[in-house]
Amino acid sequence: MTALYFHVIERNVLAYRRLWGIFLTGFAEPLLYLASIGIGVGALVGTVKGPGGQMVPYDQFVAPGLLAAAAMNGSVFDTTFNFFFKYKYAKTFDAMLATPLGPVDVARGELGWALMRGTIYAAAFLFFMAILGLTSSWWAILCLPAAMLIGFAFAGAGMACTTFMRSFVDFDYVNMALLPLFLFSATFFPLSQYPAGVQWIIRCTPLYQGVALERALAFGELSWTLSINVLYLAAMGLIGLHIAGRRLALLLQP
């Protein structure tokens, strides 16, 4: 028998079969950003200092950043807005918990689904990066598992935060957190643009870990610091998942 949480993923696949149009539009956003900022603004910028210290074309610099951001945005949306709707209004999880599934299965299944969806988007984006000649190393293949790790980290954290939300109004905070992360995690310009003190703050934020990881892999500039990024993201996902499972049990099985 397969693990029980697999059926939670199955449910989402079933529900999404009719919404494939919406599913497809998810591919568009990161590509549009790549075209606008990477190529359009990139033409004004020219070259920029890459992860190895060499000057690299701006579009090559931005693409891995957008890949990391897309992995974050994809998984956060599924584990916050959609997750909240399912648990608070649609009672989807109440139905699941009346079966052999437990709260931890629900949390794992929802996270698995977010991850699956994010992975498909990330794979498509990476494919376009390669076609457009924006990858310069074979290490770039590892950008995909790295995107999954970023997705995992933000899915876990997003889900944990969502269990503390009271109403949709609280999601304004999610938006308020996501956009700054998207814009300021060295996604669009190198860390060196910041004053030294601010650089250290940025280095501590979660999306920066993902951007640093993706960019290093895309350019094949590996170093031991990448293991810190990996550990950070893995811990964030695991802790989030653990909290989400615990909180769900408290919320749905009082």
Binding site: H7, R11, A95
Partner: peptide, 18 residues
């Protein structure tokens, strides 16, 4: 499950039981 049809509701619920 409001996002699913009558039949799909039964199908997926059965899957929760493996």
């Amino acid at each position: 499950d409001l996002e699913l049809t009558v039949r799909e509701n039964l199908l997926i619920y059965g899957r929760y039981f493996g």
